[in-house]
């Protein structure tokens, strides 16, 4: 079944067309990759899906709802979790708080509940805390619950960020360069980790990545972007052999000898 269906997506910034005629049909339960040279428009697509930009043209349909024009928090509440290229944790809040805040949309109490401490307040705070601790436990981060992310090693911060993205209980997880800035051993861990998440959380993943090792190991289906246009798609083997992809990444053979 199709979970995310993007048709004719166009995004223009003034005279620059960052994304043109982007199409995608992501099936439920699959692991997809989005690659391309710098400035190809990959992160722009992520920003369009998660609601930071309103597309110039085209539609994004998630789980049967048209989501373009919705605010990021509404999109998240529908079930799209996301991480960022540069880690965007709340660095002066404990790891536990980072995870707990993901339930902000589903609190079921408001200002008066918080001030007068209604029964609902105690019930929900307790539930949310238990859920958060359970998630941290699964991720092997329970002993880090009271630490501040800024004091943790980079690899662990990545892990916390992925845990936080999962804490909104998403159906679709968007990972923006999860291997960026990781050491080679951490990258191997990350590959296993993403595989494990994919199997255990019953989730669809769309990831942007530059490290071919990660993409080729994980993704069943890959799309290649260059200057906002889709230049190739298919499974890892097909992509590796595709002359246009090689050209986009390495340049024309003619260019080298010219």
């Amino acid at each position: 079944m199709s979970l995310l269906k993007i048709t004719n997506l166009v995004q223009r910034f003034g005279g620059l067309t960052a994304v043109s005629e982007f199409q995608a049909d992501i099936q439920e339960g699959t692991l997809n990759g989005l690659i391309g040279p710098n400035g190809a428009g990959k992160t722009t697509i992520f920003n369009l899906i998660s609601g930071f930009y309103v597309p110039t043209e085209g539609t994004i349909e998630f789980d049967g709802t048209i989501i373009n024009g919705k605010k990021p928090h509404e999109v998240t509440a529908l079930g799209i979790g996301r991480t960022f290229q540069n880690i965007r944790l709340w660095h002066d809040m404990t790891v536990l708080d980072n995870i707990r805040l993901s339930q902000h949309y589903h609190l079921q109490y408001s200002l008066s509940g918080a001030i007068f401490r209604s029964r609902q307040y105690y019930k929900r705070e307790q539930e949310i805390k238990e859920e958060a601790l359970k998630l941290l436990d699964i991720f092997g981060l329970k002993d880090k619950a009271d630490e501040f992310p800024k004091n943790l090693p980079y690899g662990i911060q990545r892990r916390v960020e992925i845990a936080r993205a999962l804490s909104v209980q998403p159906k679709l997880l968007l990972l923006d360069e999860p291997a960026a800035g990781l050491s080679s051993t951490d990258v191997v861990d990350l590959i296993d980790h993403i595989k494990w998440i994919h199997e255990n959380f019953d989730i669809t993943i769309l990831m942007i990545e530059h490290q071919m090792q990660v993409i080729m190991n994980l993704c069943e289906h890959i799309k290649v972007l260059d200057f906002g246009k889709t230049i190739a798609e298919g499974n890892p083997e097909e992509i590796q052999k595709n002359p246009q992809v090689i050209k986009a990444y390495l340049g024309d053979e003619g260019d080298i000898y010219a």
Partner: peptide, 18 residues
């Protein structure tokens, strides 16, 4: 704590459903 999240990173706050 939603407002503390806004102080520390507003983009992250939006994306985490606040």
């Amino acid at each position: 704590k939603g407002i503390i999240a806004i102080k520390q990173d507003e983009v992250a706050a939006e994306i985490m459903s606040i």
